[in-house]
Simulated scan of single mutants.
Amino acid sequence: MTDVSIIRANESRRLAAVRRYGILDTPPDGAFDRITALAARRFGVPISIISIVDEDRIWFKSHHGLGVEQIGRDPGLCASAILSNDPHILTDASIDPRSLANPLVAGDFGLRFYAGVPLTTDDGHNLGTLCIIDKEARPIDESQIEDLKDLAAIVMDQIEMQLSARRAVSQAELMAREIDHRVMNSLQFVSALLSMQSRSLEDADAVGHLQLAANRVAAVAQVHRHFYADADDQASCITFLRRLCAELESILGREILVTGDEGNIPTTSVQPIGLLVNELVTNAAKHGRGLIEVHYEIDANKHALIVSDEGRDLPKDFDPAAPGQSLGMRVVTSLTQQLGGKLTSGHRPDGGSCFKVEFEAQQQLRSA
């Protein structure tokens, strides 16, 4: 078989390679634009293009001197250029039998000069071309062709580098998720150990403290699990809180009602919100009575988390940020600071305590 026949037979594999690199329809990239600008200057031509040949179109990753972003595959010279591993050169397309009928040559565009070098992957697939175009016929010598081949190699190096970078990020994310999974399992193991230890003690206060610690660790594990279930940059906070509080109900043995506004928040805010709910609900389960309510409000960019219960009222002079507060209150204060928010406490009209954290959802998290 000839080179052309082999490349045609491998078209499905070539298209799979195009998909593998994930370059189609990506935003403009300065690295590629600099290469096409350099090629136009080096060869003194008005147009230079980095093309990717898709199934039914030729898409331009960079198009110096040309206002369109893609053309159909049939009239495109780049579709012919990828059928060979050699440079595709037309010094005068108006008299070259390979291009006489091409609409870019015979039509209003008036193409006369074309030189394209395939962008070839390490496994031998031609993704597209680096090409230079002129509306005037012109010669090109071997040294210029070699320069064009070197520039095409630089384009391909850049494409390969971007693919490697995406793969590295993907691998890092996979490793991070594996680590997170192990952290969650470790937290659950610690919680189980604490629960087992509490059952071996006779002192009621010690049993209570150990069981509370076990519940806290188990709840943190669930916050961790639900946080990493949301892989996008934005997440529905109310959906997250409903999942989390369903887990807390089984851990704490208390009924928790979740209400509030639908709406997405940055995932950077989800984890501290989950930990806040964990601490406030755990505190309500320990000191309060009756139904625990978790309410989430969204008003434009202003967000508020409210946790209340039907138990005893807080002291009139209670200050959650005052020195000497319990570990739980210190954790709540610290998490509120991470959100750049404000923590207040008060009484429910029908009796019971209420804690409210207000913050702006788009604000970057502060360091603890």
Results as ranks from 00 to 15, higher is better:
residue 191 S to H: 02
residue 83 L to F: 03
residue 226 H to G: 00
residue 305 L to G: 08
residue 300 A to Y: 02
residue 107 G to M: 09
residue 362 Q to N: 13
residue 263 G to C: 10
residue 180 D to W: 09
residue 36 T to F: 01
residue 18 V to H: 02
residue 244 L to I: 08
residue 201 L to T: 08
residue 133 I to Y: 03
residue 336 T to G: 03
residue 188 Q to W: 02
residue 244 L to P: 06
residue 131 C to M: 05
residue 85 N to C: 07
residue 149 K to W: 01
residue 123 D to T: 04
residue 194 L to T: 03
residue 164 S to R: 11
residue 260 G to H: 06
residue 242 R to K: 15
residue 172 A to D: 13
residue 360 E to K: 13
residue 60 F to Q: 01
residue 3 D to A: 14
residue 182 R to G: 06
residue 233 D to S: 11
residue 218 A to P: 00
residue 225 R to T: 09
residue 307 V to C: 13
residue 364 Q to N: 09
residue 200 S to P: 01
residue 77 L to P: 00
residue 243 R to N: 13
residue 360 E to Y: 07
residue 187 L to P: 00
residue 195 S to K: 04
residue 14 R to V: 02
residue 37 A to T: 14
residue 266 P to V: 00
residue 210 L to C: 05
residue 212 L to R: 12
residue 50 I to H: 06
residue 362 Q to M: 09
residue 331 V to S: 07
residue 84 S to N: 08
residue 253 G to S: 10
residue 233 D to L: 10
residue 278 N to Q: 11
residue 333 T to D: 13
residue 133 I to A: 01
residue 324 G to S: 09
residue 245 C to E: 00
residue 155 V to N: 04
residue 285 A to C: 05
residue 298 I to P: 00
residue 316 K to E: 15
residue 10 N to R: 13
residue 184 M to P: 00
residue 313 D to A: 12
residue 138 R to D: 04
residue 332 V to W: 04
residue 301 N to G: 12
residue 110 G to F: 01
residue 174 L to A: 14
residue 318 F to I: 03
residue 332 V to C: 05
residue 278 N to C: 15
residue 43 F to G: 07
residue 164 S to V: 12
residue 30 G to N: 07
residue 303 H to V: 11
residue 336 T to K: 10
residue 94 S to L: 11
residue 321 A to D: 14
residue 228 Y to L: 03
residue 26 T to P: 06
residue 122 D to Y: 06
residue 156 M to P: 11
residue 350 D to A: 13
residue 28 P to I: 06
residue 235 A to S: 12
residue 23 I to P: 01
residue 16 A to K: 08
residue 305 L to E: 14
residue 252 L to T: 08
residue 120 T to D: 00
residue 300 A to G: 11
residue 138 R to E: 04
residue 152 A to M: 12
